[in-house]
Nucleic acid binder design. Structure first.
Lengths: 331, 331
DNA sequence: CCACGAACACAAACCGATTTGCAAAGGAGC
DNA sequence: GCTCCTTTGCAAATCGGTTTGTGTTCGTGG
């Protein structure tokens, strides 16, 4: 109630030394039951709560994690963030969240700031930074989970979705329905382009026709998808289907089709990526590829806690999460 | 790169005292340009970055804020959070985010934890705690902005939306269209029920017929809305319109109507609250009341920074943000 | 040649906790 | 009644910075 109490106040109130209070609270050394009771009583009376700052400085751990995302307002991230927060709150961690807008410089700055704040671990949804870059910035010992990087050689723990599986399913589905002319609207250039690459691989494997002007880059937003599709659909020959790097882009593409009087899915099939909640609510309902956001967040929490428990020496871990095609109305 | 450097290392590298390094970096005392250059050089070479923990402990400010929300995965909050984060990042603040699920005990625990972590300020979307409770928990001096509490006597800074304005518009709109029988699906009982109260006020003023069994409480989710509507629409006499405490509930209500073969808006009008992005994408498009999420977050940032600048003595501030009816297809 | 100011070093206090080495008190065993 | 051990408490060092008071050195102007 009054100004915040220090451990010395508690010691005075209980008539013991600071040391004894600390030991009573942490249990690192035995304290007589009667003494402990007096101390607890004083703690209660003074409404004492240890300063986590001082504790952190002394213990060299902050019980704090960092979550670095491109944009928390992008509907994919909140679900993932929620699962992460739930997973780590149980063991007393709080989480600092920051946005980078996918900007490499922003990602670097965010990492440095988090290091300076001595977080115990970082979860990063990286678009523009490799795990090697990350490791170089944060130093060799800090637990880091990168979401969505490249598998294979990695210098952080990794959670990836098997995008190529879902994308392959989707391309095959379109192929089976007779589609041959395919477009793809990717995120901004230099975002890693994993999905574009996986898409092109699958499309090539089935001999699909993907013309260069049917591949566009745009921000991961509804507006971005709209703009990209408007120019992409204006050529004299247009693709029979457009796949997108996320659902918001796909919704924007559907906006554009509507604006141009193109019927979905009859004249144009549209497939998104992520399966955000909205995907099932739009008209027509969006056919998309599930990207298990909540599972991703929970897996990050698991990996990070395991890493914190095992130390930096243990080999890096990679978890691959499944994706799959969800058929609805847009394709 | 190597393990993290301390200020003493920089002092040694530059051949000056620790004191001079600190002064050079903070500018609190003059340092000769040549010396400063040597120091900056050493900082660069060693990749030194001051330990924010130690600085925070000494300076008694953490450059950290807390954002306490019921559920970051609820689509209303991310937009608000993003605006808040943007507003305070510019001045070097990072933000701890935590979820309470609207649980009073969770809200109390979150507040206490944030106080123990010595955050410089708190933004709380409160459902179950009064500003007086908050003030008692955090002590008299900590800057706090509560979103969505009761205006009038308050013990924190306050950002509220003028819910009654939008609700009044909506009720009047329905009245003008000849609707007399009205229902309301509110959030969980004990959530403050500001919207229910405002709704009832507006409905009474126009002589609407709001039967007790047409008012329900349910979680702020799609599933909650569905369940509430299923039982609400089962009576032998049902309302001609249902208004809801948020859009997710409203979407659930529409699910229920569809399941029961009730046509919207012909047989039942549905009006939501918040105008989340999805509202414009569902079918039929949801008529709802705008709740300017992004503006709310930005306003919280402003208020908090102003409060931090002015100190605890300045009188509490209240900002009232506009809401208004957005006509779409569901009513 | 002296006075004065600027630049900087040095040592120490401080923020608020944890942890260690050491000493005192108390009980058990003989 | 004495020794030995266990239990418990105290003082001080520590985490890594910031800040202050004092002292030293150097350069400049009178």
């Amino acid at each position: 109630m009054v100004s915040s109490r220090r451990i010395a106040d508690v010691a005075a109130e209980a008539g013991v030394s600071q040391t004894t209070v600390s030991h009573a609270l942490s249990g690192r050394r035995p304290v007589a039951p009667a003494t402990r009771a007096r101390i607890m009583d004083a703690v209660e009376r003074l409404d004492y709560r240890p300063d986590r700052l001082a504790t952190s400085l002394r213990m060299q751990r902050t019980q704090t994690l960092a979550l670095i995302v491109p944009d928390i307002a992008n509907p994919y991230y909140p679900a993932s963030a929620r699962a992460l927060l739930d997973g780590v709150n149980d063991v007393g961690f709080m989480t600092l969240i920051t946005n980078t807008d996918g900007d490499p410089e922003g990602e670097r700055a965010a990492l440095q700031e988090m290091v300076a704040r001595r977080v115990d671990g970082i979860v990063m949804h990286s678009l523009a930074t490799t795990t090697a870059d990350v490791r170089r910035i944060v130093g060799p010992d800090l637990p880091v989970v990168v979401v969505g990087g490249l598998t294979g050689h990695t210098e952080t723990d990794l959670v990836v979705t098997a995008d190529s599986v879902g994308l392959g399913e989707a391309v095959k589905y379109l192929h089976d329905r007779g589609v041959r002319d395919l477009g793809f609207v990717d995120g901004p250039e230099g975002n890693g382009m994993y999905r574009l690459v996986a898409f092109l691989g699958a499309a090539n494997a089935l001999g699909m026709n993907v013309q260069d002007e049917w591949v566009a880059h745009t921000p991961f937003t509804r507006e971005g998808g709209f703009a990209a599709a408007m120019s992409l659909l204006h050529g004299d020959r247009r693709p029979a289907a457009i796949m997108c790097a996320n659902d918001l882009i796909a919704i924007g593409v559907m906006d554009a089709a509507r604006a141009l009087g193109i019927s979905i899915p009859r004249d144009l099939a549209v497939i998104g990526f992520d399966d955000i909640e909205t995907a099932a609510l739009v008209t027509p309902q969006l056919t998309t590829i599930t990207n298990p956001a909540s599972l991703t967040g929970a897996t990050c929490a698991e990996l990070l806690l395991e890493r914190i428990g095992r130390g930096a020496a243990a080999p890096y871990m990679t978890r691959i999460l499944p994706t799959s095609l969800v058929l609805r109305e847009s394709a």
